[in-house]
Amino acid sequence: MLSENQEFDPQQSLRLIDEMIHKAKNRFSEDGFLYLLWGWLVFACTVLQFILMHVVHYSQYYLVWTLTWPAIIYQVYYIRKKKKQRSAKLYTDSVIGFVWIAFFILMVLLITIASRASDMPGLYQLVVNPCILALYGMPVFLCGIILRFPPLVAGAIGCWILSIFAPYVPYDYQLLLVAAAMLIAWIIPGYLLRNKYRKTFA
């Protein structure tokens, strides 16, 4: 047990500093839950939209995206709950939070700007999904670097490679590329993050 003992030498001081910094740094706070929630949800929505367009031929296929609304509400509740349970806030937690806020703003801007392109036949279909794929890579890449977690970096690079190929693929099939991106950038790293988190706190 540590005390108010003043009789300790500089080497002991440095050892204590090192030990405490290590204890604080070793808190891996990312459990992968939100990656899995959004990864599976977007995966399901894109595959469902593809089925509605191709198999069922349902004209209001875009309605599947209303499934994201309850997820947004649940995410707000989940983040609030997690904040309450957290005993220490890391600098990386704040930086990662801002990365996702920037991503969300960019997504809203992209969709708003791209909706203008709907006046020009074919342009919207050509540009939106490749841009979304490129954007998906940004937060995943940054989080991979911040958390020092290579599977996220690999997933982000995967998203960017898919975004290069996407403009050469018909719009309907671009949806399957988005589903693949979810698998490599969010779902697989999400499970790996969960395993790492569980091992850290086992």
């Binding site: 540590l2 204590l16 030990e19 405490m20 604080a24 808190r27 005993s87 220490a88 806030k89 600098y91």
Partner: peptide, 13 residues
């Protein structure tokens, strides 16, 4: 010193 070493690595605790 232990308290300060912990706090230097986190935003707040």
């Amino acid at each position: 010193l232990a308290i300060m070493s912990l706090l230097i690595g986190v935003q707040e605790a």
